[in-house]
């Protein structure tokens, strides 16, 4: 069925609504003047300013470092927890799964102040460590949630079979269970990375001591007109688009390759 004209117009208007602000930022990052409203000419001065701005570059560095560390750590912890849960009693599993959903269902600001008070109760100084710990904590539930469905569809006898064949529990987990749930782990890690990379509210509450990520920098700098933010935003947009396109294209390519191979095998 072809899209009717009025539908097309509606959808195109929606797309303009979605993408105009993003284009707007990209265009104005090349603007000659400070103005956010008048284009006066092409220049790269805001990019130059951005690369010479220590706070901005520092926040880019921290954002990437924290996102990578939080993704790796939360994926490992989340995977182990999910596997452990699938082996524990129903009551405990249900309880933990309920607890696990709390930070997802709760408004982010509530999680943020909870963590803030938690860190201060432990007398942890706000800074890099609290930021990293907070990111790990809010990423874990998403990892568990994306692994759980895969675990549920797994044959529960697989691990037992592996152990009957002489594998230690650890070997059974690494060699049998983990490869089976790999797609869930990967999508969990991807969600964790984007959540951490984009987080503002929780980071804003738990950080301190000059450590800030891109979102916090944009927020504090947006109080004054500062076109370097446009340059920084454009940079983030480009990085994220490339990463996500790769993440979407690569599995599709692998899929295609597998399919053609399978087809070949079938013909042979």
């Amino acid at each position: 069925m072809k899209m009717k004209l009025h539908r097309k117009i509606f959808m195109i208007a929606l797309l303009i609504f979605f993408y105009a602000p993003i284009l707007y930022i990209i265009i104005f990052s090349f603007n000659d003047s400070r103005s956010l409203t008048n284009l006066s000419g092409f220049s790269l001065q805001w990019y130059e300013k951005m690369f010479h701005d220590d706070t901005m570059m520092g926040s880019v560095f921290y954002t990437i470092l924290i996102a990578v560390l939080a993704t790796v750590i939360s994926t490992i912890i989340g995977t182990i927890t999910a596997i452990g849960l699938s082996k524990s009693r129903r009551l405990i599993r249900n309880l933990v799964e309920q607890v696990n959903e709390l930070p997802i269902m709760n408004p982010e600001i509530v999680t943020a102040i909870g963590l803030l008070m938690f860190f201060s109760a432990l007398h942890m100084k706000k800074g890099f460590l609290t930021l990293l710990a907070a990111h790990i904590m809010f990423c874990i539930p998403y990892v568990i949630l994306s692994i759980n469905p895969k675990l549920r569809s797994l044959n529960p006898n697989l691990a037992d079979a592996a152990m009957d064949l002489g594998a230690t529990p650890w070997q059974a987990m690494i060699k049998v269970i983990v490869p089976q749930i790999m797609p869930g782990i990967i999508s969990g890690a991807l969600i964790a990375f984007t959540m951490s990379f984009d987080d503002f509210i929780i980071s804003y509450f738990v950080t301190g001591n000059g450590v800030s990520n891109i979102s916090i920098t944009v927020y504090t700098m947006s109080k004054r007109v500062n076109p370097s933010i446009n340059a920084l935003s454009t940079l983030i947009i480009i990085i994220l688009t490339v990463v996500l396109l790769l993440a979407n294209i690569i599995p599709a390519l692998i899929d295609k390759k597998n399919k053609t191979q399978k087809n070949k095998e079938m013909y042979e």
């Binding site: 602000p21 993003i22 707007y24 930022i25 984007t194 990379f197 984009d198 503002f200 891109i214 979102s215 944009v218 927020y219 947006s222 933010i229 935003s233 983030i236 947009i237 994220l240 688009t241 996500l244």
Partner: peptide, 10 residues
């Protein structure tokens, strides 16, 4: 996927 803050700032 693009930072909410950035899109709001626009």
């Amino acid at each position: 996927w693009i930072n909410m803050l950035v899109r709001t700032y626009a």
